[in-house]
Write a protein that binds this DNA or RNA. Structure first.
Lengths: 143, 143
DNA sequence: ATAAATAAAGACAAAAATATCTTATATTAT
DNA sequence: ATAATATAAGATATTTTTGTCTTTATTTAT
């Protein structure tokens, strides 16, 4: 469904959000350990998220990543778009360059419906909400 | 969503089914041209489908691929499973090895719902039905 | 029988995704 | 100031996916 990079991104953000209530900074090492991801690969992903303004970071001792308490809700859609790109969520299910209601691929309608539901889900769920689930012990990020 | 290989597989099968009413054999060259795919890569995919008994083939002059008229309906799910594998449709949305209602990832429920809908769609739609859509001019396989 | 046509199979190449390692830069603490 | 710590950035390696090319095996038509 999503690339590994995107899965790491979502998990990293949920973990950061679950820990940055008091503006603590979360180190890469900690993130990678908690979400069970390759540290340097995760670093690359965090850089993208940081450049896009989805997460904040500070270098140096006691540095790390964090999400402001008053930051606007981060939709899963924002993350997927930042890492996997828009075409991942808009392209034709069978890979046609021009697939539309007017000139549809054979599964156009069926696929559009499911994708619509996926988009709705990605819009309705935010990193902060999911982080709360994690904090409440209702979910886990590894194993 | 699906790999390119899987998209090629679905398109190839739909095209074959749309043409093999009178047990004509469809050549690889023809398939690749009609679905706009790399011929030899498509060949590899067809070999998998052939070994799995999803499509039939004959070598030699006038040889090619075909689907028996009395063949059972081929569900899209059969094709996706054959090419992308089951884990593509059963794995955790965030990549956890063990993700269940008991120990769920943060998007377990939301993701399960959408995947369920996807599975239903893949079970309800068959290559033969989609081929009929193609034959009726209600759908296209390229551009 | 022979040649031609076609899928099957295998070897290889290119591209993309994932992963690792090293160096640079910024920040903090001493 | 200096050393330590952390992200940023860049280079490289590995793996997976996709794509190409060549050879083999099978079937048909002549």
């Amino acid at each position: 469904m999503f690339s590994k990079a995107c899965k790491y991104a979502i998990k990293a953000l949920i973990y950061i959000a679950s820990r940055s209530n008091d503006a603590t900074r979360i180190s890469l090492r900690d993130i990678a350990a908690k979400i069970d991801s390759p540290e340097h690969f995760t670093a690359k992903i965090m850089q993208v998220l940081s450049k896009q303004g989805i997460v904040s970071s500070i270098k140096g001792p006691n540095g790390g990543f964090y999400i402001e308490n008053d930051a606007p809700p981060i939709k899963l859609l924002d993350v997927v778009r930042a890492i996997d790109g828009v075409q991942h969520l808009s392209g034709c299910g069978l890979g046609l360059k021009e697939c539309s209601a007017h000139q549809p691929c054979p599964i156009h309608n069926e696929f559009s419906e499911i994708r619509g539901q996926m988009l709705t889900m990605l819009r309705e769920n935010t990193i902060q909400q999911l982080a709360a689930e994690l904090s409440a012990g209702h979910a886990v990020l590894k194993h």
